[in-house]
């Protein structure tokens, strides 16, 4: 197991001031639809999220980490982009890949809002040419891209970036469940601990996939989450942005 740079722990910490507390990862509309009402439902929801948007986000984060690392002055590979995204190269190409894997407009907006906030926090924290290039090329990048670039800036590997993304995909909604359903936070953390091995598998799969071309990145989808995300923006009562 590779050593974890302490800087990377900042990125995984929920106290990172990057706007995450106002997003429930689709849990709020699921609660509103009575699809998640207790701890067992939450476990199933998190399993499903990890297998779908969790894997997609982790793979995008791993790809972004590898791409950003190539910007470093001592990198072996020049950052050429792989040019596979409809002829759009560079960060905009990878951003288009994220769009293609995020069919719900509401989820796209939520991802970009969190990407914008994370870019602000990461650039205030680290200086890195890959991160700067991402911010210059895409105004509000998708969240996994910024997470991957920030992981590179923090000295992390693509596999570690994927692990932080997978962890966030489960920990974010879990925290929202404590606030929305009044679940026992100790129970919720046991659910997260039980999912840790699954997060590692997702990170392995994501990192392996990211080693190939961008157009072949995983794209599992969760149509019900897409529909709930769209219903959420029309709901009268919303405590979370997404």
């Amino acid at each position: 197991m590779a050593e974890i740079p302490a800087a990377l722990l900042l990125l995984a910490d929920a106290r990172l001031p990057a706007g995450g507390h106002a997003h429930s990862g689709g849990l709020e509309p699921a609660v509103a639809a009575h699809a998640v009402t207790d701890l067992a439902d939450l476990r199933d929801f998190l399993h499903g999220r990890l297998a779908t948007t969790g894997l997609t986000g982790a793979a995008l984060a791993a790809a972004a980490c590898a791409y950003a690392a190539a910007y470093a002055p001592d990198a072996d590979i020049p950052p050429s982009g792989d040019g596979s995204a409809g002829g759009r190269r560079g960060w905009r190409g990878l951003d288009a890949e994220a769009d293609a894997r995020t069919p719900s407009p509401a989820q796209r907006r939520a991802s970009r809002a969190q990407g914008r906030s994370l870019a602000r926090a990461a650039r205030a924290t680290w200086s890195h040419p890959g991160l700067d290039a991402l911010a210059a090329e895409v105004r509000a990048p998708h969240h996994p891209l910024v997470l991957g670039a920030a992981a590179a800036a923090a000295g992390g590997t693509p596999r570690q970036a994927a692990a932080v993304a997978a962890y966030g995909a489960a920990a974010g909604p879990a925290s929202a469940a404590v606030r929305l359903l009044g679940l026992d936070p100790l129970d919720v953390h046991r659910v997260l601990a039980d999912l840790a091995a699954r997060m590692d598998e997702v990170a392995d799969e994501a990192a392996a996939a990211a080693a190939g071309g961008w157009d072949a990145l995983p794209a599992p989808s969760a149509p019900l989450l897409d529909l709930l995300a769209e219903a959420h923006v029309r709901a009268g009562l919303r405590l979370f942005e997404s």
Partner: peptide, 21 residues
Amino acid sequence: AVRTGCCPHTAIRDDISANLD
């Protein structure tokens, strides 16, 4: 309008990103 995820104080103190945006 900014939503605060059940944490109004977080949004003005600990994590001001949504308000700054």
